[in-house]
């Protein structure tokens, strides 16, 4: 079976020192992995390398059996990798409503699909993340939990096979965090995507992923 994500001996230097090296990882289709580690160890950088937002100094990245990064070369640009990304600070576009954001993603990722289908996908995604009816709201008109759900909706509306999450629950209170973990499990059940979840909280890592990998200074 083809892996959703494979990392081969990834190395990254930062500010003249080695951030990590020889990071090798295999995530099966539909599988889930949590990357844990202290602040500054390079968890977010590794996720950005997977997304194609940063280049490694060595090593290959494979997504769905296709080599997308080879050493310092980006072979496949981020928007052609078929991934969803939930940023730590959510990065919701302030000038677009939730519905407009989701439509923008669909128009970019699936331009051949009809508007009617786009509309259906937007409505379905909003319903699945429990913010149906909030599609015409701007980010600043949403509560913290609703913003979190809107970020999930944007990352998943085009049904990517791989979802990357960069400490998405770090700013939430205990109850909301618990609620969002449940939502994430529901969404994985509905869409079957693989996840790579970055966190510094080992308890959260074991709650959201089947496998936990500790990243330490210099490598795993």
């Amino acid at each position: 079976m083809t892996s959703a994500l494979r990392l081969d001996a990834i190395r990254k230097m930062q500010g003249g020192r080695e951030l990590f090296s020889d990071v090798t990882l295999d995530v099966a289709a539909g599988g889930s992995v949590a990357l844990v580690g202290a602040s500054g160890v390079g968890k977010t950088t590794l996720l950005r390398i997977v997304a194609g937002l940063e280049r490694p100094d060595a090593g290959d990245v494979w997504i769905a059996g296709r080599r997308v990064t080879q050493s310092r070369s980006i072979l496949v640009p981020p928007h052609q990798r078929g991934i969803g990304f939930v940023f730590q600070d959510l990065a919701l576009w302030p000038h677009m409503t939730v519905g407009q954001s989701l439509t923008f993603v669909l128009e970019s990722a699936a331009p051949a699909v009809s508007r009617l289908e786009h509309r259906r996908l937007v409505d379905e995604t909003l319903r699945l993340v429990h913010i149906d009816g909030l599609g015409d709201r701007y980010p600043h008109q949403l509560s913290g939990g609703e913003q979190q759900r809107a970020a999930f909706a944007r990352a998943l509306v085009h049904r990517p096979p791989l979802l990357l999450l960069d400490e998405p629950f770090s700013s939430l209170d205990f109850d909301l965090r618990h609620e969002m973990r449940t939502t994430l499990r529901e969404l994985r059940g509905a869409f079957g995507f693989a996840t790579v979840f970055v966190t510094h909280d080992r308890e959260e890592a074991s709650a959201v992923a089947a496998r936990t990998i500790a990243l330490t200074f210099g490598g795993p």
Binding site: P78, F87, W93, P94, V105, R154
Partner: peptide, 26 residues
Amino acid sequence: IESRLEEAALLVAPAARVLTRITLPL
């Protein structure tokens, strides 16, 4: 402009489209 706003769009759209739909409106 917070770079993540553009990066979030770069995951689904080419740079030219991100420029016209995200960067310029901001």
